[in-house]
Amino acid sequence: MVKKSLQRLYLFLIFVFLYLPIIVLIVLSFNNSRTRVVWGGFTFDWYISCFQDEKIMSAFLTTIQITFLSALISTAIGTLAAFGISAMKKRGQTICLGATNIPLLNADIVTGISMMLLFVRFMDLGFMTVLAAHITFSIPYVILNVLPKLKAVNRSTYEAALDLGATPLYAFYRVTWPEIRPGVFSGFMMAITMSLDDFSITYFTKGPGVNTLSTMLYTELRKGIKPELYALSTILFFIVLIVLLLGNIRPQRKAQQL
């Protein structure tokens, strides 16, 4: 009994450690006092001024554009690559997967700097270079999510569909695609997560004037913290919470239907 309560206490303490910073941010986002960390009454002002702040809004917009474009493109390239890799012989597979692992294992700062060194030779750093960088580090997550699903696909059913007169495209859409769809979906979600969370690689591949939320926050942090940023964090936290809950509930509902 004592052991049980000690265990619960320990979990609770870790829980506090993990959530305290987030709760503090959320509470302060409603705090009506600009300078000090003292409670000065309840307010929505920071939310309003957050949406009027040009810097925050432009960074928000850039982040959304980069995230969705990079996730879409990396999912397309990665899924195709998974098809190609699964058809290769053992040796080709090993080489390809080894290359796939490089950006996963290498230090973010080195990946970022290496791309910057190449990009500045050919173009100005800006939106496109950040996009290219995000696609690069997202592709491996897509491949690693799609490949196992693809290996589990039964080739004979696809061939049976062809024998029964289906066009390759139709057979793919009706037979192969339903089996790999969860993998493609989770690869896409991983790509979104990684892109949203990235700081180091964006920091080195971005040009002046282009900011994602992470790099904008970094610049602002060095100047001092504005209360609008608390409001922004709270909004982001709840967006993430909702997306995660939707993502977790969806498959279960599917399973119940079957």
Binding site: V24, L25, F199, L213, L217, F237
Partner: peptide
């Protein structure tokens, strides 16, 4: 899943 930079911001604040 919170933004990396926001988590650091929170600790700076604390």
């Amino acid at each position: 899943w919170m933004n990396f930079m926001l988590r650091i911001l929170a600790w700076k604040l604390l």
